[in-house]
Every structure is written in structure tokens, then in C-alpha cells.
């Protein structure tokens, strides 16, 4: 093992120069307090034949170390977020579908049958687990619980993956946008006009085929900036919102720093659009 280096040795001490993985590990996990002329030290100590050899090995080691760290960070971020938000949507959709089935079935047998996931919850509380209808209702509740815990997970992880986008759009909508674009990087490279209609592809292509008006908004429709604006100004609101979301996605992808001033800018834009209504 080479992780017990004394403070004044370089990353290459005790490393086989032909083993880039070990060298990368030493770059990542090592440390030191003395600054020394490492290329010279490396050649004098016989670890490398020349400074050129030293630099070539250093390049491979630092690139390998960085690539490994980037890969680790990537598996923990936008790909995972996409899976969790899609799983959340699947659970909610299936829970609703099955709740309809439960309601229809229950309606054929009981006078007081209700509808929806809530009614499935009441049925699930009945003792008779052997009854297939009650058993199915319990599945609906489990799925609904699963959807809720996935939602909580998305709300926790989206701000880590895309802090600005999550602050502006809310974590769930942020996750959906990332999922629709295919990744944070892909979202960061999309023009705001595309972000504006993400999730409205059907309407967009109907429009492009020439027999429908252009869609004003895709999944961003659920955002308060649009919901809280009167219908005739929603197009402007959607355009303004999509513009800020595009900027947020780019900052999240390229720097990852939180920029609180974006929130205020969006608020101000929406404020100004809504003022037109009162005129």
C-alpha cells in the first residue's frame, strides 16, 4: 500500500510508473506540505528516466484521476435524477389507473362505492384481505406511498444536481425538464424556445404540419409564473420563464454555482408581464 506517504514525498513515491490507476489514486488521495521541484526530484530519485517521461506519466495520472472523479459524480447526479422522476411518474400513473379499476369493480358490488386513490385507501383498510378487491386496493395504496417517497427523493436530490433550475422551477419540474431533455447537459444546450415547449411535442408537431396553433408551453405549464397569469398573457410568461430556466440550466451544467439573483430577475419579469393586465 502506498497511502502512508510521508508529507514531503511526491505523488510518484512508491508507485509503479506503468500503473496509471495506482498513480491516479495517489494524485487523488495523497497530500503534502512542502512544495518541491517534483520533476527534478522524480528524475534524481530514479523514479523516471527524464522529465519528459515524468510529465507524460503525470498527464496520464491526472487525467485518469479526474475522469474517475467525474464518473463518480455523474452516476450520482442527473442520470439518477431522471430515473427517479420517471419512476415517480410511473407510480403515480399506475396508481391512478388501478384506482379507477378498483372503483369500477367496487361499483358493481357496493352501493357506497367512491372513486380515486382515496377510495382505494378506505377499501384497503377493510379486514377482509382474502377478498381480491381489497387486496388490489392495498396495492394501489402501496404504489401511492411509493410515488410519495420517490417525490420526496426527487425534491431532495434535484437541488444537488441543478441548484438554480430547482430554485426557479421547483425540484420536481426541474427534474422533469432534465428528463425530457435527456440530461442536464442536453438541457443546457437547448435554446429557450425548445425548453418552453418541452413536453408539448405532439402539439408542436401538429403545428409544424400546419394544422394547429403553436403550443405556448409544455410541462412548464404547471409553474406558478404561468398558472398565476391570465390566459392572454401566458405566452409571454412562458417565454420569459423558459428564458430564465435556460440560463439556470446552463449555469448548473457549466459552473454549478447558485446564483440567487436569477430568482429576483424572474420575479421581476413576471411582475411586469402581469402589470399589462391591469392597464
Amino acid at each position: 500500500m502506498t497511502d502512508r506517504r510521508s508529507p514531503s514525498t511526491g505523488w510518484f513515491a512508491g508507485i509503479d510508473p506503468g500503473d496509471p490507476e495506482a498513480a491516479a489514486g495517489a494524485i487523488r488521495d495523497g497530500s503534502g506540505d512542502a512544495v518541491r521541484e517534483w520533476p527534478q526530484v522524480a528524475v534524481e530519485s530514479g523514479a523516471f528516466d527524464s522529465e519528459a517521461d515524468y510529465y507524460a506519466a503525470l498527464h496520464d495520472a491526472t487525467v485518469t484521476a479526474t475522469r474517475a472523479a467525474v464518473r463518480e459524480a455523474e452516476t450520482a447526479d442527473d442520470r439518477q435524477l431522471i430515473h427517479s422522476v420517471r419512476a415517480m411518474d410511473d407510480c403515480e400513473r399506475v396508481a391512478n389507473e388501478l384506482a379507477e379499476r378498483v372503483a369500477e369493480w367496487a361499483g358493481s358490488r357496493r352501493e357506497d362505492a367512491g372513486t380515486g386513490v382515496d377510495y382505494a385507501g378506505t377499501l384497503a383498510g377493510e379486514d377482509d384481505a382474502a377478498e381480491p378487491l381489497v387486496s388490489l386496493a392495498r396495492r394501489v395504496c402501496d404504489l401511492d406511498d411509493e410515488a410519495a417517497s420517490l417525490r420526496a427523493h426527487v425534491q431532495r436530490t434535484a437541488p444537488e444536481v441543478a441548484p438554480n433550475l430547482s430554485a426557479l422551477a421547483g425540484p420536481v419540474l426541474a427534474a422533469r425538464l432534465v428528463a425530457l431533455a435527456g440530461g442536464l447537459k442536453d438541457l443546457a444546450r437547448k435554446p429557450s424556445g425548445t425548453i418552453q415547449v418541452l413536453g408539448a411535442e405532439e402539439a408542436l408537431f401538429a403545428h409544424l404540419r400546419g394544422h394547429a396553433p403553436s403550443p405556448k408551453h409544455g410541462v412548464i405549464f404547471v409553474h406558478e409564473a404561468i398558472q398565476g397569469t391570465s390566459p392572454e398573457h401566458r405566452g409571454s410568461a412562458a417565454r420569459a420563464l423558459a428564458g430564465k430556466l435556460a440560463i439556470a440550466a446552463r449555469i448548473d451544467h457549466y459552473t454549478g454555482d447558485r446564483k440567487p439573483e436569477l430568482d429576483a430577475e424572474l420575479e421581476e419579469r413576471i411582475e411586469r408581464i402581469r402589470e399589462r393586465e391591469t392597464e
Binding site: R5, T9, G10, W11, A26, I27, R28, G30, S31, G32, D33, A34, V35, R36, E37, W38, P39, Y55, A56, L58, H59, T62, V63, A65, T66, R67, A69, V70
Partner: peptide, 30 residues
């Protein structure tokens, strides 16, 4: 940064915190 470094043999990327120079003092020369 990695793709920039791949085509530049004299560029050494270090995923480190600049506030903690001791974490890269075993790599960086004067």
C-alpha cells in the same frame, strides 16, 4: 476540462479545493 486536457499533454487537471493547497502540494511544482 478533461476534453481540453486530453489534447494537451502539458495540461494537468486536478479535481481539488483551491482553499486546501496541501491536497495538491504532492503534485504541483513551484
Amino acid at each position: 476540462l478533461l476534453s481540453v486536457a486530453e489534447s494537451r499533454r502539458n495540461l494537468f487537471p486536478l479535481l481539488k479545493d483551491a482553499r486546501k493547497p496541501e491536497t495538491y502540494a504532492h503534485v504541483v511544482e513551484p
